[in-house]
Design a binder for these strands. Structure first.
Ligand code: MN
Ligand code: MN
Ligand code: MN
Ligand code: MN
Lengths: 226, 226
DNA sequence: CGCTATATTTAGTCATGCCTAATACTCCTA
DNA sequence: TAGGAGTATTAGGCATGACTAAATATAGCG
């Protein structure tokens, strides 16, 4: 019966509300969630964010103290994880079943995540063999909405050595396109040759590249034997 | 230039507007499109329909004369066919690629039709081999938005004889479920034994059934040799 | 500790798309 | 041909989720 009321609530959430909750979750992974950061992510003005936060708070989905930032309640977290699961499953499905490139999937998933049924979610998860990571290496919340633990650390902070790429956090289409072109996708192995403040130098089987620090920042890796 | 302005306009249409246009198209296939019929199909009150028709008329998508009914302009027809193509391709894809039953696909397609990209449309059409009919036998508008011609006639008006089922017009979940159970899906062959005002009697390889006239009404068939 | 830059919230609008109640039109029938 | 039944439109509201401009809180700094 808990189930029933949850579903009722879910059914009533708008696309905008779901996206706000998802962004609160994503932003909270790196630090406090400010009105301004949320406004940037959502592509709206800060005043609009304040209005939405008040509504979400009244629905019991966020804890909101004016001027103090915002966080998800456990109900809000469930919704955010559900949408995130949709998003990442859809990205994975589009890539594996329909031949999308990994730089194309985000925009499509951003819309579809709000409009698929639980049946659709289950069927693509089944078709995919219940994956734990999407094409970017982002963890996919499980059906019971637990998030697989983070693995790896930022390439930016690594010493020279041998590594395997685990995750690319950038969502910039052109950055993703570039990385794909270089073969820098999850699973790729490479040698980190040198790091500096501005860039990292690395070697793949296909060649040697100098990667701007901004890109290296968003790349998570794990060390491997040579 | 025409293309450009069309696409701009498309981008701005809401889900509600797209659904109104689609329903105007579907209703116009059987007779004049009244405010009331539209209200029933859309699940809203007639007053709401009037409001929307005025808006669509001002966008140049429908010809609307108060108290006189409504019809699509050629711009409106394009939009309606585009959405109808999405709907029927999605239904077909869900059935063939994800194992949906034909009585499950409608609700899912009704939402997704508004939220897929042209790239998605093209890829599922490609995967399906550019089908001309959806799982119910409904014609799928071509990429250039022409509708394949109607084939067959209503089972209700047929004389006893041998027939192949071409199309099921009902969208009722239970009716579809029943028909699927009997094997009465597009392509099925059967013998029509007897017709009366209230029902038709027919024989499939699996058995003999008495079908209420209301169901037979929505079934299109073509005659075949015994 | 007070001042100011920045972040945030409030106040007031607007567009969408729905609703109900009241009014107007159409067209069939007596 | 005048009602009336039934259909449609207008009038007035409401919720959602944006916006701008104005007011206000916070926090960092001299
Ligand atoms: Mn989204
Ligand atoms: Mn991703
Ligand atoms: Mn629809
Ligand atoms: Mn169909």
């Amino acid at each position: 019966m808990t189930k029933y009321s949850d579903e009722l609530q879910r059914a009533h959430l708008s696309e905008a509300q779901e996206d706000y909750l998802k962004q609160v979750l994503l932003l909270s992974e790196t630090g406090p969630v400010t009105t301004q950061a949320l406004a940037e992510r959502m592509g709206v003005r800060p005043a609009s964010v304040t209005g939405m936060l008040k509504k979400l708070a009244s629905l019991g989905l966020v804890d909101y103290a004016p001027y103090r930032g915002v966080g998800l309640t456990s109900a809000g977290l469930q919704v955010a994880l559900e949408i995130l699961r949709h998003h990442r499953l859809i990205e994975t499905y589009l890539t594996k079943a329909l031949g999308y490139d990994w730089d194309e999937v985000h925009a499509e998933a951003e819309r579809l995540e709000h409009h698929i049924s639980e049946a659709f979610e289950e069927r693509i998860a089944e078709w995919l063999g219940h994956p734990e990571r999407d094409p970017h290496g982002d963890p996919i919340p499980s059906p019971s909405l637990t998030l697989p633990p983070d693995a790896g650390r930022s390439l930016r902070a690594c010493q020279p050595g041998y590594y395997r790429l685990l995750r690319v956090r950038s969502q910039d289409k052109d950055a993703l396109s570039l990385l794909a072109r270089l073969g820098l996708v999850p699973g790729a192995r490479f040698e980190l040759l040198e790091t500096s403040a501005a860039a990292v130098r690395l070697r793949l089987s296909e060649g040697r590249y100098l990667l701007p620090a901004a890109l290296a920042d968003g790349i998570d890796v794990e060390e491997v034997s040579p």
